[in-house]
Design a protein around this nucleic acid. Structure first.
Lengths: 120, 120
DNA sequence: TATTGTTATACTCTATAACTATA
DNA sequence: TATAGTTATAGAGTATAACAATA
């Protein structure tokens, strides 16, 4: 499933990890790098170049929270990208469900979300 | 889900990739490295050290098919390992289903298998 | 000429440790 | 003293290319 999604977002110029970061920033404006790292299980040391790359491409920008923390937000360009991203995700879900037993196509997503929520 | 399974099989001394290879060898005695690589999307060049490591630990052995091909089989030690492996997999499935909606715990596995079969 | 397996090696991803600056 | 972020770097995992031996 993730391999398919990875291929779909490749033309947008980002990886699955970067996609997750952007979604997290979109859903949590002013989030800090360290918080993203905790949620996505990415080490602080690896967040630095990751965020720098997203900033260099103009998708996010930083605002100082205090002297040592910086809050992240999507730029307008980042918001636009997120729309395209959601199209890819929707197509990916359709592709997944295409071969699921007919009875209730959305049951799978509901079940997976329930499991994910319980574990996280 | 895979992260949990990875932790469960770690005490057995193998990785998820090695687990997949062993299962494939168990289900297809006399299989060739190149065939495993095709199924699991592992490059030939990376199969060499992978198989060598499994052989060094006494879990598989090679039999010449012809001058350039070698068929793989589990050793008795490998068969024993596979039993322990299946216990881990069963525990992993139980762990996954524990937080699935009650209605039909096995529906998820059936659905995922149907999807997997259709894609592969 | 195509295939099986191997080696060498580069690239990416992730992990650890040490550092600066700030709370 | 603890935390946010950075840098340097080592270790996996995975990629390409070139090779030998055989079909």
């Amino acid at each position: 499933m993730l391999a398919d999604l990875g291929q779909r977002i490749e033309p947008l110029g980002l990886t699955l990890t970067e996609m997750s970061v952007l979604q997290l920033v979109a859903a949590n404006p002013q989030i800090r790098q360290s918080e993203i790292g905790q949620v996505l299980a990415i080490k602080r040391a690896n967040m630095a170049p990751l965020i720098a790359a997203l900033e260099a491409r103009g998708w996010i920008h930083r605002e100082a929270i205090d002297g040592r923390s910086q809050g992240l937000r999507l730029t307008p360009s980042g918001e636009t990208l997120l729309v395209d991203l959601k199209v890819c995700i929707t197509e990916n879900e359709r592709w997944i469900l295409r071969d699921a037993p007919k009875q209730d196509p959305s049951q799978l997503i509901k079940t997976l979300k329930a499991i994910w929520t319980a574990k996280a």
